[in-house]
Design a protein around this nucleic acid. Sequence first.
RNA 1: CGGAGCGUAGCUCAGCCUGGCUAGAGCACUUGCUUUGGGAGCAAGACGUCGCAGGUUCGAAUCCUGUCGCUCCGACCA
Length: 583
Amino acid sequence: MKWTNTLVPTLREAPADAEIVSHKLLLRAGLIRKLAGGVYTFLPMGLRVLRKVEEIIREELDDAGAVEVLMPALQPRELWEQSGRAETARDVLFRVKDGASREWFLSPTAEEVITSIAANEINSYRQLPKNFYQISTKFRDEIRPRFGLMRAKEFIMKDAYSFDASDEGAMASYHKMYDAYQRIFARCGLKSFPVEADTGVIGGNYSHEFMVPAETGENEVAFCEGCGYAANLEKATSNLPATASDETGAEVEEFATPGVVTIEALTKAPHQIRANRQIKTLVYIADSKPVLILIRGDDQLNETKFLARTNATAVRPATSEEIFSLLGARAGSLGAVRSVPPHVAIHADLRLKGARGMVTGANKDGFHLRHVSMERDVHVGHWNDLRTVRAGEPCPKCGHSLKLRRAIEVGHVFKLGTKYSEKLNAQFLDETGNRKPAVMGCYGIGVTRTLQAIIEQGNDADGIIWPVTVAPYQVCLTPLNVTPGGEVMQWATRIYEELRSSGVDVILDDRDERPGVKFKDADLVGFPLRVALGEKGLAKGDVELKPRGGAVQFVKAAEAVESIKAWLKKAVEATSPIHRGKE
RNA sequence: CGGAGCGUAGCUCAGCCUGGCUAGAGCACUUGCUUUGGGAGCAAGACGUCGCAGGUUCGAAUCCUGUCGCUCCGACCA
């Protein structure tokens, strides 16, 4: 490709609405342009990267036995009603009506469609297992699009769905995808790591997210350097000792605490009750039913864990009016010992199990209770791990100290089970002639997000540093004098043609610009190898090879093509350290 | 949806508080000359519905009201 033939609108300054480095560089390097919040056009350089990431995904998934399909973005509303998600996913669904007022959803994902295909086309265990994938535009009405491609209303996702005859088969499919993901991200030059993820109402332990460490990531991950344990903070647990029981059987006693409405305030004089001796009482509404949640005073509720432990589809904190009408007291004086209506379920964090001599609200404004024993005084209906892990707590597997870090979620693998196959009748006949629902898994990769994560991970003050496997062009040929027919252009053209005919991805910067401009642009866009040709060098027969972020080396012009190919070969190998077990 | 901020040239921004002549600068763009190994210099030029609508006023980019859009924090995130 000749530079003057394509469009690479680089910017010296980043548009003011870009906040994080990868977003700025996407704009400055001319990869994308914004049409509206969360909606972007891919310009030639951006599209080339996107296609390369997609191609890596295709190669690895095909290799892992998945097959590509393409499902419609327009999906009939009725299908989503069948799965129940017309309601549960309503907030993210884009709805459109056709001329006959029929309602359609723009696909945010495709479990419904693929499962209906399976329901119609897969009838026998002989056809299983199957794994279908597609790479397509997805739509989600994100409340708040963010950071360019990181969270967009319209984005490109690879979604895959596996169908198996048995649970063991589903696990095998799951692990195949898990392994493929490791290779995909490694080949994209990304340092990524899998973490245990929340599985929501479906339950089970078979969900992993693939994370790219980044301060700007929207996820927080707990991990252990001792044994490799890693989990999304929404899911992470730790191995903390139980709450000590200070005291023996004294009766519950009310005491006045005027004006004290926080855990913090109760730790101070005159009460001086340590936070870990307090019970925090939270009121939530789970699908319109009020519930009490008890957490130790020094702990934080993990809403995701709580949601996963109820059968509710949605939970939210109760409003202050709801709290008052339920318990007759305001937040700050709440407790689960007295005046709790019998229909209200009480959930408690496991860390409170067996705790005695605790302090909690009296459900009477300005009063608390002391000498509270969880077992004796509180009717806990559900004991679960509901707290949020903190850095420094012992790893649940090996006891080492846990660390926390922020990360970008680029992929997710999930064992679904039979939830969708049951609702949408994706059944098959097994060896014995019995009708069974297929056991499903689903697997997503945010392709556009992955692209941005690569930039977030690979950049410096000069611009993007692309891994050679996904760079828009692997080589940027930079003649410093573009006079037609001149010696520099003659050499540049010859090398350019030879590289192209041997399949090297090369862009020829044939602009009549000063060298500084060309160098700055090449660095900004981030081509892995820049080959500069100037009159001075050519007088000695030399051209200059400069890897992005590396040192210059001179090679003879006549040997330039071979040197470039050799460099690329090494670079590709270095980016793909994980080799497939191919015969 | 709650909180905060911002909308002036393709990009970055000044001007607004304290209303006043023809609305500015840098970069980018066009033409010419010079320059030519890390975002050149000089000269000339083109580019604006000051987001939009209404109001106040002799007069509005500037003040007021409404509205739309964008960004950030929070809530939310199959």
